[in-house]
Amino acid sequence: MNALHQEWLALQAQHERYEALALAVKLAAFAAVVLVPDNALALALLALLWLQEAVLKTFQGRLGERLLAVEAGLKSGQAVAAMQLHSDWLATRPRGLGLAGQYLRSALRPTVALPYPLLMLLALWG
């Protein structure tokens, strides 16, 4: 098995792990609504968990970008340097507001954002 195959297997496993972690964050958000008696604290925890999930999904997206590059190289047979996830990301890494913008875009994706406003309404009515 060559290095690109090994990289793909490792990246795919981590990509799926981030999906599981995002689900765990959603479950923690639900638990916060149910278990935290103070509405203000529950809302603060929900906001924090929403941001945490956005960060996880941003990281997952970076892995996905590298997975696509590796897959394109494997499919075409063209040379793609293996094990370059961080070097490639560092070369295009946004700074300051650009990085914050990535996290915000992740937070507003429907698959991330959907439960949080609903849970916040539940926390307010609780």
Rank of each mutant, 00 (worst) to 15 (best):
73 G>I: 01
31 A>V: 03
29 A>K: 10
77 G>L: 03
52 Q>F: 08
108 L>T: 15
39 N>S: 09
122 L>A: 07
4 L>N: 07
22 A>N: 10
44 A>T: 11
15 H>D: 07
57 K>M: 12
124 L>D: 01
52 Q>P: 02
47 A>Y: 06
79 A>Q: 05
73 G>Y: 00
112 V>S: 13
19 E>Q: 14
70 V>Y: 06
119 L>N: 02
109 R>D: 14
38 D>V: 12
112 V>T: 15
5 H>I: 03
97 L>Y: 12
76 S>M: 14
59 F>V: 10
22 A>I: 02
45 L>D: 06
14 Q>K: 12
38 D>T: 09
25 V>A: 05
20 A>S: 08
23 L>P: 00
105 R>T: 11
111 T>V: 10
122 L>K: 09
30 F>V: 13
109 R>Y: 03
124 L>N: 01
102 Q>C: 03
13 A>V: 06
29 A>H: 12
62 R>A: 01
92 T>L: 12
37 P>H: 11
61 G>I: 03
31 A>H: 09
16 E>G: 01
38 D>Y: 00
42 A>Y: 01
117 P>H: 10
80 V>E: 11
11 L>Y: 10
88 D>S: 02
11 L>M: 11
126 G>A: 02
114 L>I: 09
116 Y>G: 04
119 L>W: 04
66 R>Q: 04
97 L>F: 05
86 H>L: 14
93 R>H: 08
1 M>G: 11
3 A>R: 12
96 G>C: 11
10 A>Y: 12
92 T>P: 03
74 L>T: 08
85 L>W: 10
54 A>T: 02
5 H>E: 12
113 A>S: 06
55 V>Q: 07
16 E>V: 08
83 M>K: 11
104 L>C: 06
4 L>F: 02
91 A>F: 06
81 A>G: 00
17 R>F: 02
104 L>D: 06
87 S>F: 13
54 A>K: 00
57 K>H: 01
48 L>N: 03
115 P>R: 06
52 Q>A: 15
58 T>E: 13
36 V>T: 15
53 E>A: 03
72 A>I: 05
63 L>S: 09
95 R>F: 13
77 G>H: 04
122 L>C: 04
115 P>S: 11
62 R>T: 05
40 A>L: 00
85 L>E: 05
90 L>I: 08
7 E>A: 03
37 P>G: 07
117 P>N: 00
40 A>S: 13
107 A>P: 11
10 A>I: 04
8 W>S: 07
60 Q>P: 01
87 S>P: 00
76 S>A: 05
119 L>Q: 06
52 Q>T: 10
95 R>E: 12
100 A>Y: 15
126 G>I: 02
122 L>G: 06
47 A>E: 07
23 L>G: 12
6 Q>E: 15
7 E>T: 12
12 Q>D: 14
91 A>L: 02
64 G>K: 03
101 G>V: 04
58 T>C: 11
104 L>I: 08
59 F>R: 10
40 A>I: 14
